[in-house]
Design a protein around this nucleic acid. Structure first.
Length: 287
DNA sequence: AACTGGCCCAACCGCACGCAA
DNA sequence: GTTGCGTGCGGTTGGGCCAGT
């Protein structure tokens, strides 16, 4: 009896094991099965895909694999400067709405953008010893990093040889310029940067779509991005002096407050902040 | 050569939402 | 109104890779 029972259980569990859903990395065989099924039946109804394709995967797993890896339009390779700029800008608008952000970066997945944000931006925030959601970090991003990025894009577009160019970059530049044409005007001869406020329509912080992201005006980027103004901004505007930090009110006027002064005096003292804010320490400036 | 720690990415998990029954 | 199902989203984790020691 026990023998039969054991044998039966053994057979049963083996068959259950065979029916068990697979997890972990996808094999090439699974990829081709999924591709073949989607080619015939199209995307969607992922539970049906999982059931009928012969894959021992959940519908969610199939969907994720397709959307994040197997879609034909998926773009591979490093995030370009333009894409970085878009990510920064859009994140300042929408916060962690990765899928929404991804809609504006064709070929990039929300997962990819999310990973990028976590590994690069959050790392930078950590190095600066401040929260990635803090007003200070967002302001620094907006008034220092983004203008700097725009400047680098402009520089690379003026001298294409200065940046290794790929087909991907070329096509993306075209697309970016389309986006930019109505929304952003790049630097003029003096190196200043102007961004059309329409690029960031929710910056006034009144939209419910902006989550808790406290956003700021970018209308004064021109002032922020020249060496002297940047220095002034860093040391006065962003609260690198003891008097307090900066905040942008909804009237878009620069106001001094004291509540944001914490977290910037890493290690204490202005000199350490100079070190922290040295360009070499800002991740995307290293690219 | 072996070890270690950090980086990066693919994949999983839990939750929320929309919709049809 | 509510229940169940399918789907989408954001957060988290596991593991491979690689540089540094």
């Amino acid at each position: 009896m026990d023998v039969y029972k054991r044998g039966f259980i053994s057979e049963t569990s083996r068959s259950e094991e065979e029916m068990e859903l697979r997890k972990g990395p996808w094999t090439e065989e699974e990829d081709s099965m999924l591709r073949a099924y989607v080619n015939i039946h199209g995307e969607g109804r992922w539970n049906a895909v999982a059931r009928l394709s012969g894959l021992r995967r959940t519908g969610k797993s199939c969907r994720l694999r397709w959307l994040n890896y197997m879609r034909p339009e998926i773009k591979r390779g490093n995030i370009s400067l333009e894409e970085q700029l878009l990510i920064l800008e859009l994140h300042s608008r929408w916060g962690n709405r990765w899928s929404k952000i991804a809609q504006h970066l064709p070929g990039r997945t929300d997962n990819e953008i999310k990973n990028y944000w976590r590994t690069r931006v959050q790392k930078q925030a950590k190095q600066l010893n401040c929260d990635v959601n803090s007003k200070q970090f967002k302001d620094a991003m907006r008034y220092v990093w983004i203008p700097r990025l725009v400047e680098r894009i402009r520089a690379s577009s003026e001298s294409p040889s200065s940046q290794p160019s790929t087909t991907t970059n070329t096509t993306y530049n075209d697309r970016i310029s389309n986006i930019s044409s109505s929304q952003m005007s790049y630097a003029n001869a003096s190196g200043s940067v102007q961004v059309d406020p329409s690029l960031l329509p929710e910056l006034s912080g009144t939209s419910s779509d902006s989550l808790d992201t406290q956003v700021s005006s970018v209308s004064d980027l021109t002032d922020c991005y020249n060496p002297q103004s940047l220095s002034n901004y860093l040391h006065k505007g962003l609260g690198l002096e003891k008097e307090g930090a900066a905040t942008w009110g909804r009237d878009e006027e620069f106001q001094a407050t004291e509540e944001h002064s914490n977290g910037w005096l890493v290690g204490g003292g202005e000199s350490s902040m100079d070190t922290v804010w040295n360009e070499e320490n800002v991740w995307f400036l290293q690219q």
